[in-house]
Design a protein around this nucleic acid. Structure first.
Length: 380
RNA sequence: UUGGAGGAUAGGCGA
């Protein structure tokens, strides 16, 4: 039973749902660990419904089952359900507290995340590191640094979280200093440093680092590809892409983006069609590609065809219209989403452009006030 | 043997 469970778990962790399920179905008896493991497989592969069904039909549930379900909801963006699970679970421990902390942060409730953190009695390295990451994702470097310095002991992930917090918020020098002083480095921290070099437009140094890295994985390859794209080296990007050992959805998106940024519409479209499981980013790149090559109508069609939209997809369309002088279209599209999605700073740049162009300075001022008061978007 | 924390891709400005 232990070996079977271990196999289910290994396949689950590597995202091989079918193999995981096959082993699960083949095993003679199941215990709670097997059920939890297969539920985790569903959750890891984004099959929220199946995970929930498994959870609901469990004859008994332990802390692992409850926390697993909490995480499944968090991963799929169902924060209210995550909170419901947290409230309903009969006991909680440091793992579930940390899971809930992360869930709050995802929803944007930094304060709730913080008070959850503060209320954890015996904090371990994981919840400290989670808190660093929360501050980092919120752009609050000082908070991240304070947590990092306050924690009683640090592990690989703590250092790595702090490094990522610096890198993702443009504190490139701090990132470099921290990297030099790190007691350990691994694939993830190396990759973070690759993105730091990229942001500094040191693409050649990035390539040297890439070549010298002791290991590379798909994330590293994609980071290098993005480095070439950012610096306009389409040929190098193509070359690199052809050498990637195992393609995934994200690196294909990155290549699609390389074509889009370089106005290679035909190649972009070709790549788009090669991608079968398209996510929001993939579709949004196509909006960008069309909008920046004079095909506003096709961009709009993509916007309307894509299965789901987020603020970046709306923003791509808005910017496309604004930059090409289709100012009435800006407001037309804005009306399509402003009640369901909060416009962000990119959207407002497009809106102000539209207002200025058609001479409606007063309307622009109103939008500016509304941005701050109603939408809580800070001017940048 | 099952649950919690870190790295890559999309929109304006910048580059």
């Amino acid at each position: 039973l232990v070996s079977y469970n271990a196999m289910v778990a290994v396949y689950a962790q590597t995202g091989h749902l079918h193999d995981s399920k096959r082993v699960f179905d083949d095993m003679p008896v199941h215990d709670l660990i097997s059920f939890n493991a297969i539920a985790g497989a569903y959750s890891h592969t984004g099959h929220l419904q199946d995970a929930k069904e498994m959870f609901d039909t469990l004859p008994e549930r332990d802390l692992v089952s409850w926390t697993g379900m909490l995480t499944a909801y968090t991963r799929s963006g169902h924060l209210q359900d995550a909170k419901g699970i947290f409230c309903d679970m009969p006991q909680r421990d440091i793992v579930s507290w940390t899971a809930m902390l992360t869930a709050y942060a995802r929803l944007g409730y930094l304060e709730s995340a913080k008070s959850m953190f503060d209320s954890i009695p015996q904090r371990d390295c994981v919840c400290w590191s989670a808190m660093i990451s929360v501050y980092g994702q919120k752009g609050q470097i000082d908070g991240a640094k304070r947590v990092f310095e306050d924690m009683p002991e640090r592990n690989m992930v703590s250092w790595s979280s702090m490094l990522a917090a610096y890198a993702q918020n443009g504190h490139l020098n701090d990132a470099k200093v921290l990297f030099e002083s790190m007691p350990y480095r691994d694939l993830m921290t190396w990759t973070t440093m690759l993105t730091v070099l990229t942001e500094e437009d040191r693409v050649d140094d990035a390539r040297v680092l890439f070549d010298e890295m002791p290991q590379r994985d798909i994330v590293t390859w994609t980071a290098m590809l993005a480095a070439y794209t950012r610096n306009g080296h389409l040929e190098n990007a193509k070359h690199l892409f052809d050498r990637i050992p195992q393609l995934n959805q994200i690196c294909c998106n990155a290549m699609l983006d390389a074509y889009a940024q370089n106005s290679q519409l035909k190649e972009a479209l070709e790549m788009f069609h090669k991608i079968h499981e398209r996510d929001v980013a993939c579709w949004s790149v196509m909006i960008y590609a069309y909008a920046h090559n004079g095909h506003l109508d096709l961009a709009r069609k993509v916007l309307e065809t894509m299965p789901e939209r987020n603020i970046a997809s709306w923003g791509a369309m808005l910017s496309g219209y604004s930059l090409t002088g289709h100012f009435l279209r800006v407001f037309e599209v804005l009306d399509l989403f402003r009640l369901i999605e909060c416009p962000d700073s990119v959207c407002f740049v497009a809106i102000f452009g539209a207002c200025n162009y058609i001479g409606k300075m007063e309307a622009g001022r109103q939008w500016f006030l509304s941005m701050i008061m109603d939408y809580k978007v800070e001017p940048t």
